[in-house]
Design a protein around this nucleic acid. Structure first.
Lengths: 142, 142
DNA sequence: GTATCTGCAAAAATTTTGCTAGTAT
DNA sequence: ATACTAGCAAAATTTTTGCAGATAC
């Protein structure tokens, strides 16, 4: 339970050499104040209640800035565009952090995912594991 | 190793009550012929080599149709828009197939993911598990 | 004072929709 | 013959960009 989000925010900005602007403070608060996984539009709506003059572009720019700094994460590394997968067998994905490439890996190459304490009320149908890291091609370039 | 994609395709269409059109045959082939996780634009480019007059809208419509039928899958259920996650602790996601809601679940609630046979050349940094299913709210409505 | 950031407007990129003519069953 | 589908153009959504004025350090 964090006590002082405001202090956290000032510190975070200093640590990442970001200017602690009013807009950033409110955006950060909108994202972190209540648990959730919000879209830029949702965050924009929340922030506008406090800064009616803010622009959607500012929200986008700062979310991107926060993500690049590692202060926030993006839920899916592939939100940019639809990607179709013809593989209907149980399998998982190797996802390269650098080039965003996706490679299949058969489910049997992993220990089966097992839930220790079941989430109340949620009806589990299947598991999909993203194995995040750096592919061999990108490793060679760095 | 499938031998006869063409036959597969005709059968698939019959099984799902879809008209086996020329465009669909070429689109399906573009997605399944070589392993990958292609975007609509990439598929459009491939298909145009064989049907120069095809429209991008037709590619989109049919990918969506295939996905709804279960003939193809989408790599990420959240490609539509960016979603930010303020939780930097190790955790995974409960994702509802119906309403697309995302709920955090701490990493300790799952057995740790373990790779049995390591993918050659890929440098693993972290695991992200999507637990797919139906949330309690949506279950109540069905 | 200087570098960075905001807001605006415009553009780019992605996806959907309505309609008419054409095609599969 | 009937129902479904393709192509087109237009619109809707989502995201990025360039720049002038404002703000943080």
């Amino acid at each position: 339970m964090p006590k002082e989000h405001a202090l956290d925010f000032e510190r975070l900005c200093r640590e990442h050499s970001l200017a602690a602007t009013h807009q950033r403070r409110i955006i950060f608060h909108a994202v972190t104040a209540s648990p959730g996984h919000y879209s830029p539009e949702q965050i924009y709506a929340t922030v506008r209640a406090q800064i009616p003059s803010i622009s959607l572009a500012t929200v986008y720019k700062n979310l991107k800035t926060f993500i690049e700094a590692g202060i926030l994460r993006e839920v899916s590394p592939h939100h940019g565009t639809l990607r179709v997968d013809p593989n209907l067998e149980p399998h998982h994905h190797l996802v390269c952090r650098i080039c965003k490439s996706i490679t299949d890996i058969g489910a049997k190459f992993l220990d089966p995912v097992r839930v220790r304490r079941a989430p109340p009320g949620f009806n589990i149908e299947q598991f999909s594991v993203d194995i995040l890291g750096v592919c061999s091609k990108c490793a060679r370039k760095h």
